[in-house]
């Protein structure tokens, strides 16, 4: 339990710092910015209480918002992703949902896990970029940005997953 608390605490802090100070400055080909902090929501244990999941999603997004001067935008997108997560897991993986383990390649199997990450990222990014573009709507840019950012985030998360997965095998 305490082990988990420490692990997820570090993950939270690490991801927010990475997001705020490094990734927010990246604008690959002027369209793609990765939002890797969603990885925290992806990795929370499968059996986590849904209210706690929502609350953590809100806190995570809000911290990012404070640093980026975008009140509500990141928080709204994270809460939506956190809300849809249990349904997504239920529909993708045939496993005991009460299980208190973190989502991983082992637990889900390759295809469902890939789909799980991809859909989480898509939900979050679509909501985030849509909310952001309310002040200046330009659907061409929006249509370009959602897949571009999602792809970028997906690559980064898959890389992070590869790194941590290998560690566990040893």
């Amino acid at each position: 339990m305490i082990n988990n608390l420490l692990k997820y605490g570090l993950l939270f802090i690490g991801l927010t710092i990475l997001q705020i100070f490094v990734l927010n400055g990246i604008n690959f080909l002027r369209y793609a910015t990765p939002f890797i902090y969603i990885y925290f929501l992806i990795k929370l244990p499968v059996g986590i209480s849904r209210n706690l999941l929502l609350f953590l999603g809100f806190v995570l997004g809000f911290v990012i918002d404070v640093f980026c001067n975008t009140p509500g935008i990141n928080a709204g997108a994270s809460v939506l992703a956190a809300f849809l997560r249990p349904y997504l897991i239920k529909s993708l993986a045939t496993l005991d949902v009460a299980e208190n383990r973190e989502p991983s390649l082992y637990l889900f199997g390759l295809q469902p896990f890939l789909r799980y990450i991809a859909v989480m990222i898509l939900i979050h990014h679509a909501a985030l970029l849509l909310l952001e573009s309310f002040s200046l709507f330009n659907w061409q840019i929006l249509l370009l940005r959602i897949p571009a950012c999602s792809l970028f985030t997906f690559v980064l998360i898959w890389a992070a997953e590869g790194l941590t997965g290998n560690q566990r095998k040893r």
Partner: peptide, 16 residues
């Protein structure tokens, strides 16, 4: 849970 979700989203959207 639904309620909590709606409340949080309302807070966020108000902020936005």
């Amino acid at each position: 849970t639904w309620l909590f979700f709606v409340v949080l989203e309302i807070v966020c959207l108000t902020l936005v």
